[in-house]
Simulated scan of single mutants.
Amino acid sequence: MAPAHPAHPVGPPSQAASASPDPALAWSAGSAARPFVSFGEPEGFGERARPRVRRRTAAAAACLVLGLGLIGGAVTGSWLTGDDGDVASGSAYTTAGTLWHGTPVDQLFPPTVEGTGAGPGGADRTWTRIAVAPDSGCAHAFDPLLHKVLAPVGCQRLLRATYTDATQSHVTTVGLLFTKADPATMSALATRFRDERLDRRSDLMPRPYAAKGTAAAGFGDEQRATWTVSVLTDAPVVAYAVSGWADGRTVDSPQPAADAVRSGATTAPAQAGLGNEAQGLGDRIERRLRQTVGSATEKPS
């Protein structure tokens, strides 16, 4: 990705169909052991004034010593107790950026995800993982306009998995884009997404991950129905989810999940609960990421 900040996207991208990767290339394929993501390759006065000066100097010296003692004690205390919030925050941010390298697939993308109250009307949901994409760069992983918008943060690694619901009626791809950006750059991108409502634009939808021989085999660009994009500021990660029907039907008017889950929404994706699929599963995968970061940065007792 180019490092320059993009101009506002103009015009819709082409809707090229996504290639269907071989599931044999998935992290979890061909091994009974838990799969791992491990692909990785910094101012005097006269005579009479002197006694007063001496007294004042002595008092000032005493205050200085006392002050230094208090400051030193506070600093020492912070070192001993680990209360330096900035250092801890920076450590967590740095740790988050390396999780793609050696974290078990099942920890970031569990085989089964429970969504208590995540469905329409507060119904429970259960999602089952049916495909895990080989980790990759970002070439061809996003539509051109989304690729351009994400360019300022760079692409370190992209991890993706696709899930289906309990009835295998819906399919949802979740992705974690690990960027090369520092906290300031991630905050700038998050601000742009919020202020320009980029997460509501259908020409900035993420692409799905389809896999042969699964319920998501026909889940291509034309089948995208609803989506979420979340730019994290406490980690160099962009998390997203995109949902559609498992029967391969095309969608003429995709709807952002935030709109599809609103009460009274009447679009087909909303009525089918696809907004809940994308939002519910996306939220839980993002939560898993933060839990993993927290565990990785915990100090031993």
Rank of each mutant, 00 (worst) to 15 (best):
D84H: 08
A49W: 11
S243M: 05
E298W: 09
R249Q: 13
T172D: 03
S136F: 04
H170S: 09
G273N: 08
A181Q: 13
M205T: 13
A49Y: 10
T266R: 11
G69P: 01
T81Y: 09
D165E: 02
A123P: 01
E41N: 11
A260F: 01
S28K: 06
A272D: 06
A211K: 07
D83T: 15
Q107Y: 03
A210M: 00
A225V: 08
S301Q: 11
F178I: 10
A26R: 01
G30Q: 09
A272Q: 11
F39S: 06
V37D: 06
D143C: 01
G137P: 05
A16K: 09
G154D: 06
R52N: 07
T250F: 02
A272M: 11
Q15S: 06
P9T: 12
E298A: 15
F109V: 07
T266Y: 03
R224G: 00
L150V: 08
S91I: 15
L64R: 05
G30K: 06
M186K: 08
G73S: 12
R157W: 04
A33I: 11
D203R: 05
A270V: 14
G248N: 05
R224P: 03
R48P: 09
P144S: 05
K180R: 14
R157I: 07
S31W: 10
A133G: 05
A184T: 09
G67P: 10
A141G: 00
L108N: 03
G282R: 03
E114I: 05
T98A: 14
